[in-house]
């Protein structure tokens, strides 16, 4: 019960942060600023993938709706990220470890593992977004620059968020 309540609170806070960042700060065309993947990646490890995907879909739709992007773009990418989240988690963690862990966050995983976890997740998310936006399998140099730049900026942003706000208040 406490878990789902905190999920809901986290959901709305992430949505609000994402919407504020996308709407009120102009990053130019080269940067895709997304912080909501953190929400999907750090859902409790015991969450079934189907409910994780539903959360991700709702989050993506909310972001799409409020940030004036193509409707469904972020939703598709987020659902994909949620779909592969358990696999990414398995990549980072040894089996049997952190079985009953509540959230795979910074303190639980340690900085290095958390960083790689976030990074792999963000790569998947960004590639999905670029593919959906261009709707072809061909990568141009422009897309590559977008992906790399956004990756760095988003990783730093997510680390800051994880360090600061939610870490202290909600865990």
């Amino acid at each position: 019960m406490k878990n789902s309540l905190s999920n809901i609170i986290l959901f709305f806070s992430f949505l609000i942060i994402q919407v504020l960042m996308s709407n009120f700060i102009n990053f130019g065309p080269l940067l895709i600023i997304v912080v909501y993947p953190l929400f999907i990646l750090t859902m409790p490890t015991t969450t079934p993938t189907s409910s994780l995907m539903l959360w991700a879909f709702a989050m993506g739709l909310g972001v799409d709706y409020f940030t004036d992007s193509i409707m469904g773009l972020n939703a598709a990418a987020a659902v994909f990220l949620a779909f592969v989240q358990p696999l990414v988690f398995k990549l980072v963690c040894r089996k049997g470890e952190l079985e009953n862990q509540i959230r795979p966050g910074l303190t639980e995983l340690g900085l290095r593992r958390f960083l790689s976890f976030i990074f792999i997740g963000l790569v998947i998310h960004h590639v999905a977004i670029i593919l959906l936006e261009n709707f072809s399998l061909a990568f141009s140099l422009h897309s590559l620059i977008r992906i790399v730049l956004s990756l760095f900026v988003n990783t730093v942003l997510i680390l800051l968020i994880e360090f600061g706000i939610f870490y202290k208040n909600w865990r």
Binding site: M53, F57, G60, M71, G72, A76, V79, F80, L132
Partner: peptide
């Protein structure tokens, strides 16, 4: 879910 998102994108 993906099909739904793609449909929305198409629209």
């Amino acid at each position: 879910l993906e099909a739904g998102s793609l449909l929305m994108m198409a629209n």
